[in-house]
Design a protein around this nucleic acid. Structure first.
Lengths: 134, 134
DNA sequence: TATTGTTATACTCTATAACTATA
DNA sequence: TATAGTTATAGAGTATAACAATA
């Protein structure tokens, strides 16, 4: 198990680095909806982390030209996050990496669905929150 | 997959915290041999990280009374790490948590061995080093 | 000269708390 | 007063580089 998670993280981290992203910024980009602006607060919820972290994450995505901040006219406290044209392309690559096509290429369809079932069975027993929801 | 790794890390992190350990110190303690002193350099190799990090990790384990530093008489550059009596008990608990008995309790023996086989098959294709070995 | 452990430093990730501007 | 985003700060984890002691 430890072997699997280490292997997964290492390969994804390397692939993300080639896109100029860290694992956290890659995941943030992945959680954004390319077709609909998302308030920063909602992104924090999706990432399961505090809003304060989203600021730095989006700073870097914005600096890379992948995301834009826009003030919501309806509620001027909110800033919505919009994926740019460049951002869409990079986000697609991130999604590919996350679906682990290379990683799972060695498995047959049957093995793949068996693995998926077992993984779900194992992980469903646990807390759904990745971070402490206190 | 992401769900599984997040769930795993969350549960282990919580269990380690109850032992007064962080994930990294728990893993360091786990990699030590309770019956044979290990040079700090070898611990770094087992953890797949730089020697410089081992210093702080062992500092905390030593402060908690779980590990002792001893200068190797044969090569006075080396300091060997010895697990104390207290350390053995805590290390046993860490090993239990890592074997994930609670996590895997819902699976039958057959399912368990199938899962193990598939996980091995998937992870074997990757780089065995968790960190950048450059 | 090469190696062991340490220190100093930096960057990423994440958490809390205080601040601002809105509402 | 409550909320959204920001800033400041802290700690864990990990990396590189330079250093002292030893080989």
């Amino acid at each position: 198990m430890a072997h699997l998670t280490a292997s997964l993280r290492h390969r994804q981290g390397t692939a993300f680095a080639e896109l100029g992203l860290t694992p956290a910024t890659a995941r943030a980009l992945h959680e954004l909806d390319p077709d609909r602006p998302l308030p920063a607060r909602d992104l924090a919820d999706r990432l399961g982390c505090d809003r304060s972290n989203v600021t730095a994450l989006v700073d870097r995505l914005e600096q890379a030209g992948l995301v834009e901040r826009r003030t919501d006219p309806a509620d001027r406290r909110q800033k919505t996050l919009v994926v740019t044209g460049d951002g869409r392309g990079v986000r697609d690559r991130v999604t590919e990496v996350m679906s682990d096509s290379r990683l799972l290429a060695g498995l047959s369809d049957t093995e793949l669905s068996t693995l998926r079932d077992l993984v779900w069975k194992v992980s469903d027993g646990g807390c759904p929150e990745p971070c402490d929801p206190a």
